[in-house]
Computed example of a mutant assay.
Amino acid sequence: MTPKNTLKAVITATSLGLVATSAMAESINIGFTGPLSGGAALYGENTLSGLRMAAEEINAAGGFDLNGEQVTINLVALDDRYSPAQAATNAKRLKQDNGVSAIFVPHSGGVFALQDFNEKDDFLVMAYTSVPTVTEKGNTLTLRIPPTFDGYVRAFTDYAMNNLGTTLGMAGATHEYAKIWDEMIQQTWEARGGTVVADNPMDYNKSADFYTGVSRVIAENPDVMFVGGASEPTGLVIQQARQLGFQGGFIVMDQAKIDEVAQVAGGMDMVEGAVGVVPLSVYETEAATGFIERYQANYGKVPGSEAAYNYLALHALVEAMDMTESTDPTTVRAAIGEALLSMDSSKNPYEVHSVTENGGFVTVTTLAVVENGEIVRKEIE
């Protein structure tokens, strides 16, 4: 076992319940830092569940061969409460104490914080964020897992202005990712000839009472409200907007998923007229439906895109390690595209088959709208 491969022997089951196939099996540590407490805890747990499921499948199959040794995956997860500073601290700990070669992080603030030192410290940032600049900064050890949101901004704006109205009230969140969305959607909305009548961002992670902030937005009588953070607080914002009498439509930031939002808000009728990303539950491909069935059997609920994207990303990461017989971050990063093509299709619910030169997984952009109480998938022209 060489230092280059940063292998760490583990002979007991991990605290996350990942079962080794042999008492003598070795494992490599993969890191995660994300919100596991606070207002975004559900979002963090959903992300982590996809990684857990992938790791359990890999280990149940006997792991994979690395330099002639059979190894399994040991997932080490730390709570950062959505704090970029804590994410950076966690990453330092994961690298120093656990020798990880890759760290999954599901928020842009955390991604940017890790990018300040990941090349020097030699680990891959597995970024679950759709902020375009994540892969435009030239960081050679970053992989962006979901598609960038600039395509969503244009598509959501065009649909809303053509079908819901031309005045927009901003009621988004205050974390870094939401601020970027806020700025971009305001610019796009006004460039299309619409009017932004209110802008009142709120802290989705620390509050459950949004009545005051929402009332300030709907007092300006917008046709459409922009909302979005994690699904759970987004559902509360929409619920409280309806309770205060708002009858317009919603543009839902891609971090929130319409089906999950509807459950919190009180039903699909509460999100009538919403436009957002297509929930995984709407996909009908064999890979997607198979993943949903397996996930439901494990966790008793329908998975969201956080689980599915991170599930396929860990499988691709391990496939790249298997192909190259290395955990060296640079070597693995270079092999990800080939790994996506060669991995078992059942492990790829979003059918991602390529990666851009700057490290972005390539996924077809679509949108979903709620019409007559049902989520309907629309193609983006």
Rank of each mutant, 00 (worst) to 15 (best):
M126C: 06
G99V: 01
T174N: 12
H175I: 06
V252R: 06
F361V: 01
G266S: 08
Y43F: 15
T166L: 09
L114F: 13
A20N: 00
V134G: 11
Q96Y: 05
S231D: 04
E374C: 10
E286C: 11
G304M: 09
T167S: 04
G276A: 12
R154C: 15
D209Q: 05
F123R: 00
I375N: 02
T47Y: 12
Y309I: 08
S130A: 14
S37W: 04
T89S: 15
G109S: 05
Q243C: 08
T188V: 03
F226C: 07
E293K: 05
E338A: 14
P303Q: 06
K137H: 05
N5P: 06
T188E: 12
E306M: 14
S27R: 11
Y211E: 04
Y211V: 06
F117D: 10
G249K: 06
S130P: 02
T212I: 02
Y43R: 07
E136G: 09
Q240H: 07
Y283M: 10
A297W: 12
A334Y: 11
A256R: 15
P147I: 11
G50K: 13
V275N: 11
P106R: 00
V125W: 14
K206Y: 13
P106V: 01
G165F: 12
N372H: 02
Y350F: 14
Y283N: 05
V252N: 02
V105R: 00
M170T: 09
P222W: 03
L317E: 02
D79G: 01
Q239L: 00
D122H: 12
V370M: 06
M343C: 15
G44V: 06
K179H: 00
W181V: 03
G151S: 13
A87R: 03
A41V: 04
H107P: 10
A339L: 10
A155I: 12
G62W: 09
P329N: 02
Q187E: 10
G300F: 09
K8F: 15
E338Y: 06
N205P: 11
E119C: 14
T142D: 08
Y152M: 11
V355P: 11
G31C: 04
S101M: 07
T129N: 11
E45M: 07
V131N: 14
M323S: 09
N358P: 03
A173Q: 04
D150W: 10
M184P: 02
P132H: 10
D150R: 07
A171L: 08
M270S: 15
M53A: 10
G228I: 08
R81C: 00
F226G: 14
L51M: 15
V134N: 11
G31V: 02
H353C: 12
S101A: 13
E306V: 13
E286I: 13
T21E: 14
V197Y: 00
A230Y: 09
D344C: 06
S108I: 05
A308N: 07
Y283I: 12
M1K: 10
G266L: 08
G138C: 00
I292C: 01
T324P: 04
A241Q: 02
T285D: 03
D328Y: 09
F226A: 12
G304A: 15
A334C: 00
M53K: 05
E220M: 13
E220V: 01
Q187I: 05
L124N: 08
L124P: 14
L36C: 03
I11R: 05
V227S: 03
D122C: 00
T148G: 13
A241K: 12
L280Y: 08
R192A: 03
Q115E: 14
M126A: 11
T363E: 15
P84D: 05
A274R: 03
